[in-house]
Amino acid sequence: MSINVTNIHKTFGAFTALDGVDLTVPRGKLVALLGPSGSGKTTLLRIIAGLDHADAGSGRIEFHGEDVTRVRAGRRKVGFVFQHYALFRHMTVLENIAFGLRVRPRRERPAAGEILDRVHRLLKLVQLEGLDARYPNQLSGGQRQRVALARALAVEPKVLLLDEPFGALDAKVRKELRRWLRRFHDEIQLTTLFVTHDQEEALEIADEVVIMNQAKIEQVGTPQEVYDRPATPFVYQFLGNVNVLRGQVLEQVGAPRDRPGTLVADGLIYVRPHDIELAAYVPGAGGAAAVVRYLHLAGPQARLSVELVQTHENVEVEVSRTELAGLGLAVGDVVRLRLRQGHA
């Protein structure tokens, strides 16, 4: 079921959290809502779930064409997963997952045996079989998050909303769990919107990325689209490391001819460290002269910090270690710097 959100305004006192936001989440897709903290992404998610309301008179929320703006949270058929899980501590895993079914009015409530069957199916789905009698305190963070997911899925939601689902986990579990979520989504095909401030996470698993900044949506697109063709300097800077060069060196470094990965805006050139090419300095051979200031050799790529001779700007460059070895550079050497051409 698709989600369609139009013209949402939300203010908290003098602070504007959402300023006329429109958003469409296509049916069955996994969409990331990406932005820095305070950009309004969680507020938007909560308004879609019905846990918050847009400012009076603004906004319309539709699930597959049906207006749910005035429907209360429990009737929206939304599965919501909280950043800190919000599990019921006094209930076992089984009771947590069964909660949404057990609080249904008697007419709609499945029989006790069917509830148990469904809980066990869900436990299998989230790979937590055998843990049904545990209390949340006896589980690891990753397990708790999967219990929270199973609990949200138990009510057979039409839409799944996740608020920073991996935010409270350590780096390794985060990576495992997000890949798992991607495979899981492919399996269940539920329209899913998740909030994150981690661009790597969003770019890795989402079908579509929605980038928010200061109460507005900056850009919507597939991970490759937003990475290769950032619509605004904000998006460019948010999605990875970036060098901002003044336009006057543009002619020396070579103009990017509609090349993905580079953005020219307001007389500034935005370029990623790995899109810069280094060559031995030959006077008059083109390219901008720069002095090597630092060499960082740990990691798969060598990172260099160079200072442009003309403008004294510092530029970060990433080259492969083989390439660096070929150049034989040391701190203090002068190099030529150009934008890489060619690869897409």
Partner: peptide
């Protein structure tokens, strides 16, 4: 959040109080 979780799972206010808040 635990109250919000209960509400989004379909519990009404009374069920949220008796099944979630009071036991806690």
């Amino acid at each position: 959040e635990i109250e919000e979780a209960a509400a989004s799972l379909g519990a009404n206010r009374w069920e949220t109080i008796t099944r979630v808040i009071l036991p806690e």
